[in-house]
Write a protein that binds this DNA or RNA. Structure first.
Length: 448
RNA sequence: GCGGUCGUAGCUCAACUGGUUAGAGCACUCGCCUGUCACGCGAGAGGUUGCGGGUUCAAGUCCCGUCGAUCGCGCCA
């Protein structure tokens, strides 16, 4: 029967079988040392000179999947490694079997790789400690975010990825050839569907894939991304969804910071700082602060440039002890058509962005809930309301004031660990040129 | 889409103002090694310097084109 590596310390002097991958082999001639990893951790295993497994052990390539049995022993005192899991024990191998043989690796897994090499070899490079850490943390973020939203009264639903139109208007959509007499697209946002779900659930959320056919090559864009969206009814203004978002962020950060301290340590970064309240600046306040603090002239006063985002975050971090900052009161014309504008606040909208360590990770707003106002806004923007008749039903049949927002999972993960490019925080990233990762020199047919 | 930078061994990088036979570390192969944990030591193999053209007595190095990567801007979240 198989024993997990993390349970070995309770099986000292017992005979066990472990299954896992060979991460390291150190061949000493008459002795061979291995590091063997399974889902629970790693352990040093060794083949002693007297063992019959010695010949087999010399032939085992790194990354091979193996099954090893032997006796768990406490390490001699001088060989104890206090700084790692299982540093006080080791497995003395009696026999070892290769279950899945690994060919020679193109590089050592511990090596520092250029990003494109890393991405070309994902089936291999996702096995590194660094990648396992990133996606372990990402899974924990998803978990904690869900838990928080549910606790705040939100109910999860599944949004469609095939849609009949483009929710955002501005974003470029991937066209799908299939439906008779109509164009279809991959969703650029679950926006319409989460608004519709306010009807049945009042508070609804979804974790959805979104697809953008933007011709963008940056460290923060993907052709396929994951968003964590929520929408809630019966609000007074945009501060309510902001408050619930802040709560979700706060609980997510607290949860992952305590559960995965080791990952933050390996990335040499502190968990995010969150003061009592996340600071909130209007767009014009933010621009004034940037101009004053950084002595810079703001060229575009209608929106935040990447440089603006980095500097207001630096300011919030230094002066408010916050790695997060909200920006509100964007001009309505810079926001999506369904964004609410109160007559006494014109020309500013009730939209907001949440920035995290220099990057926008969330965008939200109070939405227009009045049918006539929504139709009028469409007309003002040159949109044809008849093409939105399906969506408009939600407003025709009684929609309360509502609002919500959307968090980019990959951006959130990347900023959490100080990863410069979101592609590294995406297990299988798609961008302008990357779909299924093809090797430039095809080795799939190669033999040893 | 625009601009910057870069393409040299499987990987990560060197090669001065153009100048012998393009080097190193790691990986790989062979030999040695009974306590390693980045194991160590010795030897070996591995290159059409992305591709095409040009300048020059001479090009990895300079110029033009092209393809690719990456970073920034724009767009966008």
């Amino acid at each position: 029967m198989r024993t997990l590596v993390s349970d070995l310390s309770q099986r000292i002097d017992q005979s066990v079988t472990i299954d896992g991958w060979v991460m390291v082999r150190r061949d000493q001639g008459k002795m061979v040392f291995f590091e063997i990893r399974d889902r629970s951790g790693e352990v040093q295993a060794l083949v002693l000179p007297s063992s019959e497994a010695l010949a087999a052990a010399k032939d085992i390539s790194v990354q091979s999947a193996v099954s090893a049995n032997g006796v768990v022993r406490a390490r001699p005192q001088k060989n104890v490694q206090n700084n790692k899991l299982n540093g006080g024990i080791e497995l003395h191998i009696d026999s070892i079997t290769v279950i899945g043989k690994a060919q020679t690796l193109p590089f050592e897994l511990a090596a520092e790789l250029n990003l494109d090499t890393h991405l070309d070899y994902l089936p291999l490079t996702l096995r590194t400690q660094r990648s396992r850490d990133i996606f372990t943390l990402q899974a924990a973020i998803l978990d904690a975010y869900r838990t928080s939203l549910k606790a705040q009264g939100f109910r999860e639903f599944i949004a469609p990825a095939l849609v009949g139109g483009d929710a955002e208007g501005g974003a470029a959509a991937f066209k799908v050839e299939y439906f008779k007499d109509t164009d279809a697209f991959l969703a650029t946002s679950p926006q319409f569907y989460k608004q519709i779900m306010v009807g049945p659930f009042e508070r609804a959320f979804t974790i959805a894939k979104i697809f953008r056919a933007e011709k963008s090559a940056t460290t923060r864009h993907l052709s396929e991304a994951t968003c964590m969206d929520f929408e809630m009814g019966f609000i007074r203004d945009e501060r309510e969804p902001m408050m619930h978002l802040e709560q979700a962020i706060r609980e997510t950060v607290a949860s992952i910071a305590s559960a995965h301290q080791d990952i933050f340590e390996r990335f040499m970064i502190e968990p995010p700082k969150l003061p009592e309240r996340i600071p909130v600046f209007t767009l014009s306040e933010a621009h004034a602060l940037i101009a004053k603090e950084f002595g810079r002239t703001i060229e575009d006063t209608l929106d935040m440039s990447p440089e603006d985002e980095r500097q207001i975050c630096q300011y919030a971090q230094e002066k408010h002890g916050s790695d997060f900052v909200f920006i509100t009161r964007f001009p309505t014309k810079k926001r999506a058509f369904y964004t609410y504008e109160s007559p006494d606040e014109a020309p500013f909208s009730r939209g907001f962005d949440l920035l995290f360590r220099g990057l926008e990770i969330n965008s939200g707003a109070q939405r227009i809930h009045d049918y006539d106002m929504l139709v009028q806004r469409m007309l003002d923007r040159g949109l044809d309301p008849s093409k939105f008749s399906y969506y408009l039903q939600a407003f025709k049949y009684g929609m309360p004031p509502h609002g919500g927002c959307s968090t980019g999972l990959e951006r959130f993960t990347a900023r959490m660990l100080g990863i410069p490019n979101v592609k590294e925080a995406t297990a299988f990233p798609r961008d302008m040129s990357r779909i299924d990762n093809r090797l430039s020199t095809d080795q799939t047919t190669g033999t040893e």
